[in-house]
Design a protein around this nucleic acid. Structure first.
Lengths: 106, 106
DNA sequence: CCGTTGCTTTCCATGACGGAAAGACTATCG
DNA sequence: CGATAGTCTTTCCGTCATGGAAAGCAACGG
């Protein structure tokens, strides 16, 4: 299904990034997107709230730093979304049934 | 590049649909998306304004009906967008360089 | 001319997004 | 303890996109 949580450009980039690195610091993500702290924080919150990323704040080693990682659901949502977009084309071919208003023959 | 014209959910669907059927009626598209006339009209205008779809109004055969079709640029923009989304993941892998703040081995 | 059909434009409400600034919390230094 | 610095988080605000209703406009048919 279409997932507007991951569809938002910046969140899509966050997901894409995390899909590869598996885990990243708050500052790294923020820098990667080129957005303000507040923006990053809010997006991360949205993703975390949706259960797509897991945010951890490991202490002990100096300052508190926030790490983010895709959850299983998050990875699936991201990959499904990409798949969905591709499927759109194929789905559209079946949807209309092929007559009124649609001309696939050119 | 990231194309917000085609990224918008409904316009993405319009592009996906047109990418397959090559040409569709206004009413068909509107029905396919499940939106109001005004919404369809505006999206079509945005796409046409961007040079992504070509709108024609062939007369002669009864009522005037609006048809829409992807232009070459429109098709490319749509396909490029899909490609870009997939590339995001691959690009993210190269971006960070693989150290500070990113843990790909986790 | 009037009515119907089909698209367009206008008006309005809603919501997402981004950034700045202030706040909250934690660790370090004296 | 008090002051300071670092790292997010929350709040406030302006802007832009989106969707729908309704009014407008254009063309065909009676």
């Amino acid at each position: 299904m279409f997932d507007e949580i991951v569809h938002a450009p910046n969140r899509l980039r966050i997901c894409a990034f995390l899909a590869v690195v598996r885990e990243a610091e708050f500052g790294t993500l923020r820098d990667e997107l080129g957005v303000a702290d507040s923006v990053m924080s809010k997006h991360l919150k949205v993703l975390a709230d949706a259960g797509y990323v897991k945010v951890t704040k490991p202490r002990g080693s100096g300052r508190v730093r926030t790490w983010a990682a895709l959850t299983r659901a998050g990875r699936k949502a991201y990959e499904d979304h990409l798949w969905y977009l591709q499927a759109l084309a194929a789905d559209a071919a079946r949807g209309p049934g092929g007559s009124t208003g649609a001309n696939s023959g050119g």
